[in-house]
Design a protein around this nucleic acid. Structure first.
Length: 803
RNA sequence: GGGCAAGUGGUGGAAUUGGUAUACACGCAGCACUCAAAAUGCUGUGGGAGUAAUCCCAUGAGGGUUCGAGUCCCUCCUUGCCCACCA
């Protein structure tokens, strides 16, 4: 017999499957149940794939093939998320047009992916930079504009001076640009913003809905990101002035402990009361200094609080009419709440730190209840003291009473705040979807009529960012200058483009109906295929892509385009694959492993099997070339089993194969691929020497086929099948056959194993006691001791307790 | 600082959810095949004592609950990921 040669086998079957259309949805499949399994589509970067990328793709392919075998109609597509900063920066660096660069990268990615033998339906391939695709990205934007959810804003936004564009809050890490690490500055610019906060509550509460089966860690991350908090907003009047400082707090119960107030450096009140501030030049200097804080100061020394008093300004606490000093400090954020706080150093750590540094009064108004430990700065709920008529109340009831009083007096009201902001949606860059808006002097901001979509991204000579706050598109006058759709007069196109995350916010819908250019998606197809049953991808998308996509989906639900409230039913995140040295794979460490090399040496099936065998799917694991060798050895032995087919059916073999079917079936359902594979290894170890019947061998190949499709298909054919193994039915185990007739009865004395006895599985307690006490080994341990009691666990063990 | 995971052999990891700890794989050692090596096959492989049967110890550390704890409870330590001055 020829030896196992993955290269020949894999090429052969990849071609045949494509020809047979194994990977396409069966046209007469409407009677079947559907299964929509989706990978987070890749960003086609210049580096190509490394072995970490395919891990998720392999898992979805295992699931897709498994579901096909179970008779489902399976949708398993792939496409490209190709707009955005990385592609543009890569193109600028390599002096190549982004479109060309992206096309080359896609070709490389596709070639690499094809070697794995995935069941992708390439007829449904999509690409976000395709005008027929982004027509609908623009269409969704227009619908949002129509509903008032897309609006222009002049509020200060995050500006990256290096990337020369504004960024959304989600694009920041510790206040730095996540792409280049540059300190982001706040800049007032006209921007397009999507009102994501209007959906905040739904984005939050639907996380707990039954439509969602997500990992807890991702749900928690989203909840934290949305960051809902319930509190009170009220005014501290400024003494001898009409003005007041609006503050927001969740700890109104501590209000009698207020000893000062703080406003953020960019707070508008400062300009308004400028004349009253005695040390205005000092204050102005602080504002400038706060804006220009270096990266080091922000990240390393950020806990060191700084500030400056607004001399001559006093604020009045409405609860006791006390006047307190007002400070400006950058530990208060300008864009959260009201940008100003009441400061209670006795009960807030940040205020405490600041008060210590500037020698401000610390007034305690909450005391711990019993069982709570007292601290210099006590931040928990407790009992009120020094709070006039609120003394003795619990924090909780004080908050309620106090906010009722504020409301009655018309000074304040209950307020819900979110950490999540509206989505700053415009970028001053070239490589993105044009925002389909026209600015007319007469008519103002006008939507591009639907019939004129897509607004195509024009070809340009220079696509580098300008830094002027205008995108590179502004330089193309023949594109910019147009006629107003409303009045026909001269008008200008919007020159900002959409952010990288626009195209990926709805792509899962495009796969279902990829050629439709009359409507976004055919209603019947949408109902047939949504929601996505299984979505697999990196956890790094927990708070961006997954939040944006959910937001868009809910909007599409509201305008009747989709019928589900959530797009992704089950979500599983892939654990990272680290390099052999335990570090992240990176060009910098020179430790990147290319899947092409692995496949060339060991075969695609070995690669697939190895990545599923490495460890628990969601956990990070280090790559091990020896590990790949190990699974290749296993496949060699599976292949050799062809020489060892026997006639006689053995009861033990039958029982084992049925147990393995059960185990593999359950493990695939639960994404426990590593133990599924180990159970198949156990099976092989057992049957290898004695041989296997053809029937059992076939069952074995069927359960192996989702993991190692090529070798399974090849042996299947060699065993005489003319039809693909993937057109066969997933084996069902026989519950009768997996029952053991005999078990190893564990006999313990005082909880320690002293003997195991091979005995009938349905032994009664009385019989078990008898055989246990008759055992010579047990007798030795019982000598001279008194039996206190005997515990019997049916089918498993007996424990004799002695004194 | 907050949230979420997780700590088991030389390594990646199993353990039916309270019932034989270390499955499976890697690595290592010995043997077989070979002139030799690679490949392959067989055997062994948590630590300690013993010729052996066998016994003792061991799941980050320490306590507890239980007939019985890797699994449950308390205290502490460590690591990874995400968020981070959100009032």
């Amino acid at each position: 017999m020829e030896t196992y040669n993955p290269k020949g086998i894999e090429a052969k079957w990849q071609e045949k499957w494509l020809k047979q259309g194994i990977n396409r949805i069966d046209k007469d499949s409407t009677a079947k149940e559907k299964f929509y399994v989706l990978d987070m589509f890749p960003y086609p970067s210049g580096a190509g794939l490394h072995v970490g990328h395919p891990k998720g793709y392999i898992a979805t392919d295992v699931s897709a093939r498994y579901k096909m075998l179970q008779g489902y109609s399976v949708l398993h597509p792939m496409g490209w998320d190709a707009f955005g900063l990385p592609a543009e920066n890569y193109a600028i660096k390599n002096k190549i047009h982004p479109r060309i660069a992206v096309e080359q990268n896609i070709a490389t990615f596709k070639k690499q992916l094809e070697k794995f033998g995935f069941t992708y339906d390439w007829d449904r391939e999509i690409n976000t930079i395709d005008p027929e695709y982004y027509r609908w990205t623009q269409w969704i934007f227009l619908k949002m504009f129509e509903k008032g959810l897309a609006y222009e804003s002049e509020e200060p936004v995050n500006w990256c001076p290096n990337c020369k564009t504004v960024l959304a809050n989600e694009d920041l890490e510790h206040g730095l640009c996540e792409r280049c690490g540059t300190q982001v500055v706040q800049k007032k610019m006209r921007q397009w913003v999507l009102k994501m906060t209007e959906y905040a509550d739904r984005l939050l509460y639907d996380l707990d809905s039954s439509e969602l089966n997500w990992e807890d860690s991702i749900i928690e991350q989203q909840k934290n990101w949305i960051g809902r908090s319930e509190g009170t907003q009220f005014a501290l009047k400024i003494k001898d002035s009409e003005e007041g400082i609006e503050v927001y707090t969740t700890r109104l119960d501590t209000v009698f402990g207020v000893t000062y107030s703080v406003v953020a450096p960019e707070h508008p009140i400062v300009a308004k009361i400028k004349d009253k501030i005695e040390n205005y030049s000092e204050v102005e200097a602080y504002q400038i200094q706060a804006q220009n804080k270096t990266e080091l100061e922000r990240t390393e020394l950020q806990k060191e609080k700084t500030g400056v008093e607004l001399k001559g300004i006093k604020a009045i606490n409405p609860f006791n009419d006390e006047t307190v000093p007002v400070f400006m400090a950058d530990y208060v954020l300008g864009n959260y709440g009201t940008g100003a706080v009441m400061a209670v150093p006795a009960h807030d750590e940040r205020d405490f730190e600041f008060a210590k540094k500037y020698n401000l009064a610390i007034k305690r108004v909450i005391v711990p209840k019993k069982d709570q430990t007292d601290a210099e700065c006590f931040t928990q709920d407790g009992e009120l003291v020094n709070s006039n008529n609120y003394d003795g109340l619990s924090s909780q009831s004080a908050r309620k009473k106090m906010s009722e009083w504020l409301e009655k007096e018309g000074i304040g009201k209950k307020k819900v705040n979110y950490k999540m902001r509206d989505w700053v949606f415009s970028r001053q860059r070239y490589w993105g979807e044009p925002i389909p808006i026209i600015h007319c002097e007469k008519c103002g901001t006008v939507a591009v009529p639907e019939k004129d979509l897509p607004v195509r991204l024009p070809e340009v000579e220079h696509y580098e960012p300008t830094g002027t706050g205008e995108g590179p598109l502004a330089a193309i006058s023949e594109w910019v200058n147009t006629a107003c759709p409303k009045c026909g007069g001269p008008a200008k196109r919007e020159t900002n483009t959409m952010p990288q995350w626009a195209g990926s916010s709805w792509y899962y819908l495009r796969y279902i109906d990829p050629k439709n250019n009359i409507i976004l998606i055919d209603k019947k197809l949408e109902e047939e295929w949504m929601p996505v049953d299984l979505y697999v991808g990196g956890a790094e998308h927990a708070t961006r892509h997954l939040l944006y996509a959910r937001f868009w989906h809910k909007f599409l639900y509201d305008i009747g385009v989709v019928t589900t409230i959530e797009p992704f039913k089950k979500l599983v995140h892939v654990g990272l694959i680290l390099a052999e040295d335990g570090r992240k794979m990176s060009k910098r460490w020179n430790n990147v492993i290319n899947p092409d090399d692995v496949i060339a040496e060991f075969g695609a099936d070995a690669m697939r099997l190895y990545e599923m065998f490495m460890g628990p799917f969601t956990q990070p694991v280090a790559w091990s070339t020896n590990g790949v060798k190990g699974v290749r050895r296993f496949l060699d032995r599976v292949w050799k089993l062809q020489e060892n087919i026997i006639q006689d059916e053995d009861k033990k073999e039958l029982s084992l194969i049925n147990k393995t079917i059960k185990k593999v079936t359950e493990d695939i359902e639960q994404f426990r691929f590593n133990t599924a594979i180990s159970s198949m290894m156990i099976l092989l170890n057992e049957v290898e020497n004695a041989g296997i019947t053809k029937k059992s061998y076939e069952l074995f190949l069927q359960i192996l086929s989702p993991f190692a499709p090529h070798i399974a298909e090849e042996i299947w054919e060699k065993l005489g099948h003319t039809e693909s193994i993937f057109l066969s039915a997933w084996p069902k185990y026989d519950p009768e056959l997996i029952k053991d007739e005999e078990i190893n009865l564990v006999v313990q004395v005082n909880g320690k194993v002293r003997d195991t006895i091979r005995i009938s599985a349905n032994i009664t307690e009385e019989e078990a006691k008898k055989v246990a006490l008759e055992s010579e080994k047990i007798k030795a341990h019982l000598e001279g001791k008194e039996i206190k009691k005997i515990i019997f666990v049916g089918g498993k063990l007996i424990n004799i307790v002695v004194s």
